[in-house]
């Protein structure tokens, strides 16, 4: 397949990159552009670790062809983390112990932030549903749910 010069907007900056038409966004980000904060865990759409925002919507980087993202706004975990202060979701994940090995964590952050934007009044049951696409093997989810709940409360203030 013929590689294509592709223009991508990532975290507010334009990147020109040579991309295969069948290449996934997680591959382009990690292997070509060194955005290694996005994690590759299953590479087949089952775990949520590579969640990225495309035009504000969380997508799985391993199932999204890069060429489909031309002209769209891509935000990765690095984009969320470029500010000095942590986002409340990040802050409470640390504070409440909502991470252990940390490998699923960027995906959790990228799922929880748009989830809380959309569901500012979510209760625990709703939060569980919102996170159901993000597999975590360490925490048993309880402290992740605590963190998202606390972040939601803070964001409402």
């Amino acid at each position: 397949m013929k590689s294509k010069i592709t223009k991508l907007s990532i975290n507010g900056f334009e990147h020109i990159v040579l991309v295969n038409p069948d290449e996934t966004l997680v591959f382009t980000l990690r292997e070509r552009l060194n955005f290694t904060g996005t994690k590759k865990c299953c590479d087949e759409g089952t775990c949520g670790s590579c969640t990225i925002l495309v035009d504000g919507i969380p997508v799985l980087g391993c199932l999204t062809p890069t060429v489909r993202c031309v002209g769209k706004t891509i935000i990765t975990i690095e984009g969320i983390s470029s500010k000095e202060d942590l986002h409340p979701v990040q802050k409470y994940l640390v504070k409440n112990g909502g991470l252990q090995c940390g490998f699923c964590t960027p995906g959790v952050v990228m799922t929880a932030i748009p989830f809380l934007d959309e569901h500012p009044n979510a209760n625990r049951e709703k939060i569980k549903e919102g996170l159901s696409g993000n597999l975590c093997r360490c925490t048993g989810y309880k402290k992740i749910i605590d963190a998202v709940e606390n972040a939601g409360k803070e964001l409402k203030v």
Binding site: R30, N34, T36, G37, T38, K39, K40, T76, I77, E78, I80, S81, L86, Q90, K91, L93, V94, K95, G97, L99, Q100, G102, F103, T105, P106, V109
Partner: peptide, 22 residues
């Protein structure tokens, strides 16, 4: 109760795992 010392770099996606090295 003490939050992990590597927690902040993990939530920021800055922690380096083996595959992140090039």
């Amino acid at each position: 109760p003490t939050p992990y010392i590597d927690g902040v770099e993990k939530v920021r996606g800055q922690a380096m795992y083996t595959d992140d090295y090039k």
